[in-house]
Design a protein around this nucleic acid. Structure first.
Lengths: 207, 207
DNA sequence: CTCTAAGTGTAATACTAATTACGTGTCGTG
DNA sequence: CACGACACGTAATTAGTATTACACTTAGAG
């Protein structure tokens, strides 16, 4: 009867957890597709296959559900964005690596959709927008970049890292925001990053 | 009885126009404060002081009202963003002028709020988002910048102009999005632009 | 002065959605 | 096996909202 196999054959302690995950996944989809106001809690239940009462027992209300989804999505976002360790590489290669990783994560379809959502509901959920934009996305990457730049003897590494990130975002982020079907092929992605790296290094008199 | 003095002492031909303007202003406020879904047409009428029937006669329905408001706001945005003629200035000063003008307009409170709105409702009104992000804001400025750069003998002026714009947006646009009360003092604004100009010119081997 | 077209205020219509209530199954635990 | 907690499904409740209808003023044009 239920659409999700997760509900069956669970050990007792995990049942609630599985239910919660099913709700979260369904809610993520519904919220990302329709936005907060236009999303219907009933649709979430229809999709997740549970019961309204259970959902309300778990999340309290629509707002609670939304915040839980946001937390979840934000975690994924951070995880996808955090660069792998590239300490052993020379500066240019390290920048290239970090840049590609960052840009790929930034342009992922779910992140773009979530970005739209968070921005749009910023009036109703300011804390969310705060966390997502400031502590959330670029700051870790900025710090990582700044470390590498400082290591290469560059003064004002923070500003440079900032510049670099903005160069990366250039065009593609906005284009992806405007067009759902937009996607950047790997080849063009790495070329774009390479261009930004060249530009940055030349601007710092290191190229 | 009415809240707006525009309604009184009108020549006959202008009455409809005045009514329309009153509705547009009220609607702009309500939409910018609440977003599309959460905005109530009745609130708009309460604020504008007209009648529901009149509003529906003028705009057809809620969507029509929203599109009219968007058109209006988009026009203001374009007007505020288009740079004054600076053809007589040397390159560095011209970039500084255009940059300051662009950034000031970009960070204006109403534009930030409208940006949030358009992004958030992008699923429901894709054409709007398209026009606003691509043909709308930065493209004219980019073209103007590219003209100056080309005039100074720079190859790939388009890319450079793009880079410059992204450097300008750096930090402040995102910070303003995240924080309603954020504002950038004139002094810091021009310093930020100056930094970007320096960086750009050095990256092009012209500084 | 009267006619006409538009504006006004209020209320009805019709629908949708969040939230709550309740009676019924289900499955480990004592 | 019987208990109790939890999950299920459905329906009731409640509250709002877009949209339409209607009966009434008004203010200028002929």
């Amino acid at each position: 009867m239920t659409a999700d196999p997760e509900t069956e054959l669970q050990r007792p302690a995990d049942r609630g957890v599985a239910r919660r995950q099913a709700f979260l996944n369904a809610a993520r989809q519904v919220f990302l597709e329709n936005g907060y106001e236009a999303a219907s809690v009933n649709d979430v239940v229809r999709l997740a296959g549970g019961s309204l009462a259970t959902l309300y027992a778990q999340f309290g209300n629509k707002e609670g559900l939304f915040l839980a989804v946001s937390q979840d999505q934000h975690d994924r976002f951070i995880r996808a964005m955090t660069p792998a360790s590239v300490g052993h590489l020379p500066l240019e290669a390290a920048l290239q690596q970090i840049g590609e990783h960052f840009l790929r994560a930034l342009l992922a379809r779910d992140n773009i959709a979530f970005f739209r959502l968070v921005i749009g509901e910023g009036r109703k959920f300011p804390q969310l927008l705060q966390r997502y934009l400031s502590s959330g996305g670029a700051d870790r990457v900025r710090a990582e970049l700044a470390g590498h730049l400082r290591g290469a003897g560059i003064s004002d590494a923070e500003t440079c890292a900032s510049y670099f990130i903005e160069l990366l975002r250039s065009r593609h982020h906005y284009r992806a925001l405007a067009d759902d079907s937009y996607s950047l092929p790997e080849k063009q992605l790495s070329e774009h990053v390479a261009g930004a790296v060249r530009f940055l290094l030349r601007g710092m008199n290191l190229g």
